[in-house]
Simulated scan of single mutants.
Amino acid sequence: MNKQLFILILFIIPFIGQLVLLPYVNRIHPIIFGLPFFHFWLVLWIVLTPLITLIIYKMEKKNGGYE
């Protein structure tokens, strides 16, 4: 797979998780770590989005995109 395509897919994943899937996870049950599922989902993406951004940054830096 082309690295630029992989980076684009990584870039799109947080948008899908936070915006597209949001109506499907808008529920109270199950309760995870004391949070309703909807809130757990949002907190999960608050953690995952910077990690995905870090992966994209490292890949771009390795390709010489950032100096």
Rank of each mutant, 00 (worst) to 15 (best):
residue 1 M to H: 03
residue 1 M to T: 02
residue 2 N to D: 15
residue 2 N to V: 04
residue 3 K to G: 00
residue 4 Q to S: 12
residue 4 Q to A: 13
residue 5 L to G: 05
residue 5 L to V: 15
residue 7 I to W: 04
residue 7 I to A: 11
residue 8 L to R: 10
residue 10 L to C: 15
residue 11 F to C: 12
residue 11 F to P: 06
residue 11 F to W: 12
residue 12 I to S: 14
residue 12 I to T: 13
residue 12 I to Y: 09
residue 13 I to K: 02
residue 13 I to H: 01
residue 13 I to A: 08
residue 14 P to W: 07
residue 14 P to H: 09
residue 14 P to Y: 07
residue 15 F to T: 07
residue 15 F to S: 10
residue 15 F to H: 12
residue 16 I to C: 10
residue 16 I to G: 09
residue 16 I to R: 01
residue 17 G to Y: 11
residue 17 G to N: 12
residue 18 Q to G: 10
residue 18 Q to V: 13
residue 18 Q to T: 15
residue 19 L to G: 03
residue 19 L to W: 11
residue 19 L to Q: 06
residue 19 L to H: 11
residue 20 V to G: 07
residue 20 V to F: 15
residue 21 L to M: 15
residue 22 L to I: 02
residue 23 P to Y: 12
residue 23 P to V: 12
residue 24 Y to H: 06
residue 25 V to Q: 02
residue 25 V to W: 01
residue 25 V to I: 09
residue 27 R to E: 11
residue 27 R to S: 13
residue 28 I to P: 00
residue 28 I to K: 07
residue 29 H to E: 15
residue 30 P to Y: 07
residue 31 I to D: 13
residue 31 I to R: 06
residue 31 I to M: 09
residue 32 I to A: 04
residue 33 F to E: 10
residue 33 F to D: 14
residue 33 F to L: 13
residue 33 F to V: 08
residue 34 G to N: 07
residue 34 G to I: 12
residue 35 L to H: 00
residue 35 L to T: 00
residue 35 L to P: 01
residue 36 P to A: 01
residue 36 P to T: 08
residue 36 P to Q: 06
residue 36 P to E: 13
residue 36 P to C: 00
residue 37 F to G: 08
residue 38 F to V: 10
residue 39 H to W: 14
residue 39 H to K: 07
residue 39 H to N: 11
residue 39 H to E: 14
residue 40 F to D: 08
residue 40 F to M: 11
residue 41 W to G: 05
residue 42 L to K: 09
residue 43 V to R: 04
residue 43 V to E: 12
residue 43 V to T: 05
residue 44 L to N: 02
residue 44 L to T: 04
residue 44 L to P: 03
residue 44 L to D: 08
residue 44 L to I: 04
residue 45 W to E: 06
residue 45 W to P: 03
residue 45 W to Q: 09
residue 45 W to G: 03
residue 46 I to T: 07
residue 46 I to F: 09
residue 46 I to P: 00
residue 46 I to Q: 08
residue 46 I to L: 06
residue 47 V to D: 04
residue 47 V to E: 02
residue 48 L to A: 10
residue 49 T to V: 10
residue 49 T to W: 05
residue 49 T to E: 06
residue 50 P to K: 00
residue 51 L to F: 12
residue 51 L to N: 07
residue 52 I to R: 01
residue 52 I to M: 07
residue 52 I to P: 04
residue 53 T to L: 13
residue 53 T to G: 13
residue 53 T to Y: 08
residue 53 T to P: 00
residue 54 L to P: 00
residue 55 I to R: 02
residue 55 I to A: 14
residue 56 I to P: 00
residue 56 I to S: 05
residue 56 I to G: 04
residue 57 Y to K: 10
residue 58 K to E: 08
residue 58 K to V: 09
residue 58 K to P: 01
residue 59 M to E: 11
residue 59 M to T: 10
residue 59 M to F: 12
residue 60 E to V: 01
residue 60 E to S: 03
residue 60 E to R: 13
residue 60 E to D: 05
residue 61 K to I: 02
residue 61 K to Q: 14
residue 62 K to D: 15
residue 62 K to G: 02
residue 62 K to F: 07
residue 63 N to A: 15
residue 63 N to E: 14
residue 63 N to V: 01
residue 63 N to L: 15
residue 64 G to P: 02
residue 64 G to Y: 06
residue 64 G to N: 03
residue 65 G to H: 04
residue 65 G to K: 02
residue 67 E to G: 05
residue 67 E to N: 13
residue 67 E to H: 11
residue 67 E to C: 00
residue 67 E to T: 05
residue 67 E to W: 05
residue 67 E to D: 11
